[in-house]
C-alpha cells in the first residue's frame, strides 16, 4: 500500500483530517504523517489512481482546506511514496528546508492571473498598427482572398504580429500586478494566453490585487480578458530541498 502525499505543513494539534476528502472513489481517508514538527497530509494510494477530474479536484481541495489554517507546501499532483515511514523519513531529512519554506510562506497565498487577447480585437490591433499587413489584407480581399499560398504567407505574418503583440502587452499586465507581490512566477502560455502570472502575496493584499486587476480590466478589457484564481496554495513558490 503506497502513500499518496498532498502537502506538508507545520505539525499542530489543530490539524483536523476529518474534514478533508481524499483522492479516489470512494474518497480515501486523509491522515497526517508527523515527524520533527512537520506533518504531511497523506492518503493510502487508491488503486488505479490517475489524473481524473475528481482526483485533481480532491488534491486541490485538501490543499485549499489546509492552507486556510496555516502555511502549506503543496505537492505537485501525483506524488506517491512507498509507505508512511518513507514520508516521515523525508520530513526528517529535509526538516530545515521545509520549515524555513513554511516560515517564508506564512500568511502568503498565490493568486494566478491569466490574460488572453480577445482574438478579433487583437487582429484589429495588429492590422491597425501595421500598414503593410493592412495593405496585404486589402489586396487579398480585393482578389477574393488570393491564392492559397498568398493567404498562407499572410496568415503567417499575422500570427507573428499577434505573437509580438502578446509579448508587448504582457508587460502592461505583469508590471502593475507585480507591484503588489512578494514574488512573481511566470507560467507557460497555456491556452495561448499573453500572460500567465502567479503572484505570491500576503493574504491581506488579495483585495488590493483584485482592485488592480479591475483597473487593468477597465483599461484593457476591450483587447483582452482576465481570469483570476486565488487565493491558492503556493504551488509556484515551493522549492525542492537540495540534496
Amino acid at each position: 500500500m503506497s502513500t499518496y502525499v498532498y502537502g506538508i505543513t507545520h505539525d499542530s494539534e489543530s490539524l483536523d483530517a476529518a474534514k478533508l476528502t481524499g483522492v479516489g472513489e470512494p474518497p480515501s481517508e486523509v491522515r497526517f504523517v508527523r515527524a520533527d514538527g512537520l506533518a504531511a497530509a497523506v492518503s493510502t494510494t487508491p488503486d488505479g489512481l490517475r489524473a481524473k477530474r475528481r482526483d485533481l479536484a480532491a488534491h486541490q481541495e485538501v490543499l485549499v482546506e489546509l492552507a486556510r489554517e496555516a502555511a502549506v507546501l503543496p505537492m505537485r499532483f501525483g506524488a506517491v511514496a512507498p509507505d508512511d515511514e518513507s514520508v516521515a523519513a523525508e520530513l526528517r531529512r529535509s526538516k530545515e528546508h521545509y520549515s524555513a519554506l513554511l516560515e517564508r510562506l506564512r500568511d502568503r497565498v498565490e493568486v494566478n492571473v491569466k490574460a488572453t487577447h480577445i482574438e478579433e480585437a487583437a487582429l484589429r490591433a495588429v492590422l491597425t498598427e501595421d500598414e503593410e499587413l493592412r495593405r496585404t489584407n486589402e489586396r487579398l480581399r480585393a482578389a477574393g482572398g488570393g491564392t492559397p499560398a498568398d493567404r498562407m504567407a499572410f496568415g503567417e505574418q499575422v500570427a507573428a504580429a499577434l505573437e509580438e503583440l502578446r509579448r508587448r502587452d504582457a508587460d502592461a499586465v505583469v508590471e502593475p500586478l507585480s507591484k503588489h507581490a512578494d514574488q512573481v512566477s511566470m507560467g507557460p502560455p497555456v491556452d495561448n494566453c499573453l500572460a500567465n502570472v502567479s503572484l505570491l502575496i500576503h493574504r491581506d493584499k488579495v483585495e488590493e490585487l483584485n482592485r488592480e486587476v479591475g483597473r487593468l480590466q477597465g483599461r484593457l478589457g476591450q483587447l483582452m480578458e482576465f481570469k483570476v484564481n486565488g487565493p491558492l496554495p503556493p504551488y509556484s513558490f515551493v522549492t525542492e530541498p537540495g540534496r
Binding site: L56, M75, R76, F77, V80, S86, E90, Y235, V238, T239
Partner: peptide, 14 residues
C-alpha cells in the same frame, strides 16, 4: 497548469 506542473516534487517519491 499549477496543479500538474508546479508544486513540490520530492525526488525520492514516485
Amino acid at each position: 497548469d499549477l496543479i500538474l506542473d508546479k508544486g513540490l516534487v520530492i525526488d525520492v517519491f514516485a
